[in-house]
């Protein structure tokens, strides 16, 4: 599995565009800045929606109204983050593939995705019984709290990718080396 991933990364790294992007003076910085600043659009909206579910923001406005109003900007932010995220990965594919932080980030992204899907199912089944004001029923509050925790984790691990403490060329313990998926290609 790791060998396959590393081969894929090496293949991506062979593209001229990948090297050009990585070595560019401004382009890489602009894309990364866009990726980080779009957090305000995506995560900002998501936090406000989740805070509403917990009854901590807009408590006297019906929750579905808040969710409906902020869904669109949140999705727009998400799309921009995914696109710029793929470009950033394409610029530095090999190191990122073997980054413990990037791997943890992907795991949390999947967890956040499953949680969001479950949340949407729950809110639909409870639609008729939701209170107008205040906190939502417990299963929805749990989903909102998990959402905040997972996404905070995604941001934290994403930020950590920049640090090289556990890069494959360092003296890693066998466990960390396994986690980072360091392999020697023949």
């Amino acid at each position: 599995m790791n060998e396959l991933l590393v081969r894929f990364a090496t293949w991506l790294d062979g593209f001229e565009a990948s090297t050009a992007l990585h070595e560019s003076i401004y382009m890489y910085s602009w894309i990364e800045t866009t990726h980080v600043l779009t957090l305000m659009v995506f995560l900002g909206m998501l936090m406000l929606i989740d805070l509403r579910m917990l009854g901590l923001a807009f408590a006297d406005v019906p929750a579905p109204r808040i969710a409906a109003a902020l869904d669109k900007p949140m999705v727009i932010g998400f799309v921009v983050m995914v696109i710029t995220g793929f470009v950033l990965f394409f610029a530095i594919p090999e190191r990122t593939t073997n980054s413990i932080w990037f791997r943890l980030k992907v795991v949390l992204l999947i967890a956040a995705g499953i949680n969001a899907w479950l949340f949407r199912r729950r809110i639909r089944s409870l639609e008729q019984t939701l209170p107008e004001r205040g906190p939502m029923p417990k299963p929805l509050r749990l989903g909102a709290a998990l959402s905040l925790a997972f996404w905070a984790g995604v941001v934290v691990f994403g930020r950590a990718i920049a640090y090289d403490w556990f890069d494959c060329h360092k003296d890693l313990t066998p466990f960390m080396s396994w986690l980072a998926g360091c392999v020697e290609l023949s």
Partner: peptide
């Protein structure tokens, strides 16, 4: 600390934007 800075940025930006 930097991570808290970043998470608070998302919240501050979200509030300003909205």
């Amino acid at each position: 600390v930097q991570m808290f800075h970043l998470l608070a940025l998302a919240l501050l930006g979200g509030c300003v934007l909205l």
